[in-house]
């Protein structure tokens, strides 16, 4: 049985809770960043570039069998970790599933408050982009 988005979100929150120190949380985030489904060079287009981020982030999305497939990249590994985390939860899902999430788990990890405002804005922009892809493909 496929896990629901909500279950995956819970898993991520619990994983991060295992690390009381911020440095360890970041270490983990970096590790996740290294597993990011890499975007093809040809998809690093202006359109896929997410505005509002301190570092450059590209997020590509395509529909396959009614499910959204994401790939991404960034100059910065921490940003890669964040986007990889989002992709881990929202990849290979139907648009309605994605739209049913409130993306609140990010706040629960405490990541948002811990990011510099520019990075936090970047995070919001990434979430907005995932939502927008889901809405367009509904």
């Amino acid at each position: 049985m496929e896990k629901s988005i909500q279950v995956l979100e819970r898993e991520v929150v619990e994983e991060f809770a295992l690390f009381p120190e911020w440095m360890d949380k970041y270490e983990y985030l970096i590790e996740i960043g290294k597993s990011l489904p890499m975007i093809q060079e040809g998809n690093k287009t202006e359109e896929n570039l997410i505005k509002g981020c301190q570092s450059r982030v590209w997020l590509h999305c395509q529909m396959e069998d009614g499910r959204l497939q994401f790939s991404a990249d960034s100059d910065a590994i921490i940003t890669k970790g964040i986007i990889a985390l989002l992709i881990r939860v929202y990849n290979n899902r139907r648009p309605d599933e994605i739209l049913s999430s409130d993306f609140g788990f990010i706040r629960e990890i405490g990541l948002q408050e811990n990011l510099t405002p520019t990075r936090a804005n970047g995070l919001v922009s990434m979430i907005d982009r995932i939502r927008a892809y889901a809405t367009q493909n509904q």
Binding site: W22, M23, Y26, Q54, S55, D75, A76, I77, I78, T79, L115, T116, R119
Partner: peptide
């Protein structure tokens, strides 16, 4: 091999305030 923003973000978590960008 290291992004300037990443370096500054992690140093910040160690209490060290530097500029990046």
């Amino acid at each position: 091999g290291c992004n300037h923003g990443d370096i500054a973000t992690l140093l910040d978590k160690l209490g060290i305030a530097v500029r990046s960008g």
